[in-house]
Design a protein around this nucleic acid. Structure first.
Lengths: 199, 199
DNA sequence: GTCTATAACCTGATAGAC
DNA sequence: GTCTATCAGGTTATAGAC
């Protein structure tokens, strides 16, 4: 599907996704989005009313995209803990490889604007999830939050550290980075398993 | 040392540290810094010439603060791998507990502005470090970058996820968060050890 | 060194022609 | 729906008095 096939509205939103995720809300100028979309500034306001409304739409769709991948796994009663971990890591890394700027974007905007998510992210949805119950059963001595932080730390952190890895030449090229993350799809579940089976 | 004891220059810089780390460069207005410092806008330019120059000074000092803590450990030839890991985790978590906004700040500004660090962070300083040599010897089958990503992912990620933890009530209060991270000082080295001793 | 006032510039948003 | 031109408001930086 070439750029020409998209409606103007979708062209603007796609441009907004790119620019907002790359630079953040405050550093993005509506002019940048217009230019990226190949349209003019007035059209942005014609379709989306304001920079803020456009931003809100973009980030919410991104958050839902993430939860859309993770939730069905976390709450699937027919998967055991180990399989859940494998699927979460595999699918989340795949998603992030297509959206590498997403983690820094979401976390830094959430810092500036916590009320964005207030009410939308229900504590029970995580605390009462199938994953949590299985964890409690398998390893009651690990604080569930410590487990979650580790699982996602191991999975997400490389994307946040990406700019640092480029500068330090730890993963200078895109191909190197992708290779590392592909390898990590197997490593992280293996390591998590070590943690779960330790005493 | 009360606020009154600080020179005007230092008051401005301290205010800049607070506001910049909390909101990022683009979202920060020089007026916010002036107000936080209890001085007037013109003085900021009198002392630091521009918003950009002040920012540059602040972020560089923060980065050096981090490396100042980590480098002596990473390159201490007389510490074995396990002890290095313990000290890195312990000291880094302590530092970040005093500067919880630092990780999001540094990583998101680095994304917007990678040239900030070009030339300053030498790839050899990490690749040729004592830590890396020990790792290579102890566990040649782990890619060193995978190890580093895991060590720092486990250590730093909780600070980046802090706003998310607040919203989801995983760690609603400051005290809860601190307790989790204090506990983590022991957990992370234990888990890293599991990884290093696995096959 | 510190202040007030203001210049110079930039950005989001809109008016109005087509 | 799409464009150009422009407004209104806000931001950085400086001039000039004290």
């Amino acid at each position: 599907m070439s750029e020409k096939d998209l409606s103007t509205e979708e062209k603007i939103k796609e441009a907004a996704r790119i620019v907002f995720t790359k630079k953040g809300f405050a550093a993005t100028r509506t002019r940048d989005i217009a230019e990226e979309a190949g349209i003019n500034l007035a059209l942005l306001n014609y379709y989306f009313r304001s920079k803020e409304k456009l931003f809100h739409q973009v980030i919410m769709e991104k958050v839902q995209q993430i939860f859309g991948v993770l939730f069905p796994i976390i709450n699937n009663e027919s998967l055991d803990l180990e399989t859940k971990v494998e699927l979460i890591v595999e699918n989340y890394i795949s998603l992030l490889l297509e959206n590498p700027d997403l983690p820094i974007f979401v976390f830094s905007e959430l810092r500036n604007n916590p009320q964005l998510f207030e009410g939308r992210v229900n504590a029970h949805l995580i605390g009462e999830s199938s994953l949590m119950k299985q964890l409690q059963e398998k390893k009651p001595d690990i604080h569930p939050v410590q487990f979650i932080l580790s699982l996602f730390g191991l999975t997400v952190f490389p994307f946040m550290a990406r700019p640092m890895m480029t500068v330090t030449k730890m993963a200078a090229t895109d191909a190197e980075f992708r290779a590392l993350l592909e390898q990590r799809k197997k490593l992280v579940p293996k390591w998590i398993k070590l943690i779960l089976e330790s005493d």
